[in-house]
Design a protein around this nucleic acid. Structure first.
Lengths: 339, 339
DNA sequence: TAACAATGCTTTATCGTTTAAGCAAAAGGG
DNA sequence: CCCTTTTGCTTAAACGATAAAGCATTGTTA
C-alpha cells in the first residue's frame, strides 16, 4: 500500500497538485481558493488519510524541523532527563529530536556533528566535550545554530545555558562548614571543562572565606575513562592519611555514586564519620541510608531554555548570543549530619 | 555560506551533475567513468568539502535511514540504556535514531507513531504501552516494519525481543526459598502487559512448586501513574499484617527503588527482617546498604537484536516474524541474606 | 571498410512538496 | 460597452540527488 501523496488527492479531485497544496497548508486566502473546492479537497484528504511527506517538505523548505542533540551519554539519567525535557519542549514546537552520545570523546563528538548535519538538522543542542572548541568554531563559521548546555567555553561566544556553578559550590561547602566540618575534601573530574572548574573555584573560595585548610591534597580528580579506579585512589588519599577529611564534596552525581560505593566498603559511616554533599540528584542518592544533600540543577528549565534559545535563533537567523544562567537549589538531607 | 551541492561540483568541473553523482556514489564501473575525470571530481568534492544532502537522497530513495524509537520514558535508566545500545548499533549501520517517550500512555504512543511515520522513519522499535494493540495492527496493515522490545502481545504476530521472564521470576523466587524465606510477597505493576504477567506467573509457579502459601494478599499491584502512594499501600499491606512477609520480589527496578525508599522509613532491616530481590539493575540498588540481588536483563543483546531484526526486515521487506527470547542472569548479593 | 561494441559523457525524468507567475472567466466601474 | 480588477484555478520551476536512456566518439573485429 503506497503512501498517499498530493498527486493522489489532486487526481481524485480533478485539480492540480498546487491547489491541493495551498488548501492543505491553509493558504486559501492568499491563493484565492474557492470555498467549496477547499472543502472538497479537505474531505478527500481526510478520506485517503493523507499524511504530508516531511522529507519532501524539508527538501523544499531547507528546514527539517529536527534538532540534533549531543549528550555525553544518554544512558546517564542526568542526560536522560535533559533529553527528556528537550524532547517534550521540541515536540510542543513541532520539532523532533535526533540524538547521539559522545562519551566525552572529541572524535565521537566530531563524528556526531557530521552525521547530524548531514541529516540536515536545523540546529544542535550540545553538552560539549573537552577539547571540542574547534568543532564549535567550525559550526559558527558554517552558521549552524547551536546551544551549549551544562558546559561552555568562556572564550567562545556562543549561546549557552548553565547554572551558577561557582556560587552553588560555595554554598554547598559553606553548608558543610556550618555543620561543623573542618577538613573538607573535593572529588572532581580531571577535565578543563568550565562547569567543573567553576565548581572547584566555588569550593576553594568557600574554604578560604571560612579560613579552613585548603591543601592540594584535599582536592582529587578522577578521569571519566577510569572512573572506578581513580575514585578509589582519590578516596583512599582523602580518608586514609594522617588527617582524614571529615567531609566530601562531589562535583557530579556519577562521582558521588561511585565514591559512596567505595566508601561503603570501607565501613565509614555517613554522616558520623564523614559528611557528604554532591552536585546533581540521583535515585541512588535518595535511597542511600543517609540520603545525600545535593545541589539540585533545574533540568526542566535548562532544557526549556535550550530549546527556546535554539528555535529563536533558527527562526530569526540572528547572531545575537544568549547566555542564560539559572539558579540551583541546595536540598539538605541527612548526609551532612545535624543542621 | 550556502551548502555545497552536486551542482556546484559539476559546475566547477565543467561536467553534468549526473557524472558527479556516479563518481561520488562509487558507481564509476557501472557508469563507465573515465579514471582521470573521477579523480578530478573527487578532488573538487574534497576541496569544496561536499556533504551529501541526506534529505534529497531520502526523497529519491524512499528510505530515510532513520529508526524511530518509542520508549516509556527516556529519562528512566533502563530505557536510557536500551536507547544507548540501539543508538550505537544503528550507527554501525549508518542509521540514526529519532526517539520519543510515551509515558505508558496510549494516546501519546499513538501521537508519537504518527509523528515518527510522518518523518518517514524506515521502521520502529517500540516498548508498547498497555492497550496499544490497535496501533500495532494498524502499523502492520500499513506494512511498517517494527520490532517490540521488553513487552509484546501474544495475540499479535509481530517481531519481538524479550527475556525469559517467567523462568527468571521462578528462579528468583526459588532463590528466596532456598534462603529460607517462607512468606514471599510480590510487588508488580497494575497492568496487563505480558512481561509483568509472565513475572507474576513465574512467582506463583515457584510458590506452588515449593508448597508455600500463596494468598492473593501476598501479591500487590501499583499503578504507574500513582507509583508512590500505591507502593506505600502495598508495602503496608505486605509487612504490617498479622503474618508479615519475610521476603519481597519486585517486578521492576522502579518498583524496587520506590519500595525500598518506603521500607527505609519503616526501620525494617534488609536482609535480617526482610529479603529483597528484583528485576533489573540500577545504581541505586548497588549503593543500597544491602546491595540488592537482581535479575539482570541482557540489555546490550536486546538492543542489538532489535536493531538487527528491524534492519533485516527493512532490507528484505519480508513479513517473516522473529521472536527472540534472551536469557537473564540472577546476580546474587546481600539483600537475601545467607544462601 | 562496414558493422558493431565499448567508452565517456549528457539529457531527462523522478521523488513529493511549495510557490511565483500566468491565464482565463467573471465581476465591477465609469 | 469597454477597461480594470478580482476570482479561481493551472503551469512550471525549484529543492538535491539518482539512474535509466541517449548520443557521440573511439576502438575492435570479420
Amino acid at each position: 500500500m503506497k503512501k498517499v501523496s498530493l498527486k493522489d488527492i489532486a487526481t481524485a479531485a480533478g485539480v492540480s497538485t498546487a491547489l491541493v497544496s495551498y488548501v492543505l497548508t491553509n493558504k486559501e486566502k492568499e491563493a484565492r481558493i474557492g470555498e467549496e473546492m477547499a472543502k472538497k479537497i479537505r474531505e478527500i484528504a481526510r478520506q485517503l488519510n493523507y499524511q504530508p511527506n516531511h522529507i519532501a517538505r524539508s527538501l523544499k523548505s531547507g528546514r527539517s524541523f529536527t534538532i540534533g542533540l549531543i549528550v555525553a551519554d544518554i544512558s546517564n539519567p542526568f542526560f536522560g532527563n535533559i533529553a527528556r525535557t528537550i524532547e517534550d519542549e521540541a515536540k510542543k514546537n513541532n520539532y523532533t529530536v535526533i540524538f547521539g552520545s559522545s562519551d566525552e570523546n572529541v572524535d565521537k563528538s566530531q563524528d556526531l556533528i557530521h552525521v547530524l548535519l548531514n541529516r540536515q538538522v536545523d540546529g544542535l543542542i550540545i553538552t560539549p566535550t573537552e577539547g571540542s572548541e574547534q568543532q564549535l568554531l567550525q559550526l559558527q563559521s558554517q552558521h549552524v545554530p547551536f546551544v551549549l548546555i551544562d558546559r561552555y567555553f568562556p572564550e567562545i561566544a556562543a549561546n549557552h545555558i548553565t547554572v551558577n556553578n561557582q556560587e552553588a559550590a560555595f554554598q554547598a561547602v559553606s553548608h558543610l562548614v556550618k555543620a561543623g566540618r573542618k577538613r573538607i575534601g573535593m572529588v572532581a573530574y580531571k577535565t578543563t571543562l568550565q562547569h567543573i572548574s567553576e565548581r572547584i573555584q566555588g569550593y576553594q573560595a568557600a574554604l578560604q572565606q571560612h579560613e579552613l585548610p585548603a591543601p592540594a591534597s584535599l582536592l582529587k580528580r578522577a578521569r571519566y575513562s577510569h572512573l572506578k579506579t581513580d575514585i578509589e585512589t582519590a578516596i583512599d588519599g582523602l580518608l586514609k592519611g594522617k588527617h582524614p577529611a571529615d567531609a566530601l564534596f562531589f562535583a557530579t552525581n556519577s562521582l558521588a555514586i561511585e565514591g559512596l560505593k567505595y566508601i561503603n566498603t570501607l565501613g565509614i559511616h555517613i554522616p558520623n564519620d564523614l559528611a557528604v554533599i554532591t552536585f546533581d540528584e540521583a535515585e541512588a542518592l535518595d535511597l542511600f541510608y543517609a540520603p545525600v544533600t545535593f545541589v539540585k540543577q533545574p533540568i526542566l528549565d535548562m532544557g526549556k531554555a535550550a530549546v527556546r534559545v535554539l528555535l529563536d535563533q533558527i527562526k530569526d537567523n540572528t547572531t545575537a548570543v544568549s547566555n542564560i544562567c539559572i539558579d540551583t537549589t541546595l536540598i539538605v538531607r541527612k548526609s551532612c549530619g545535624s543542621q
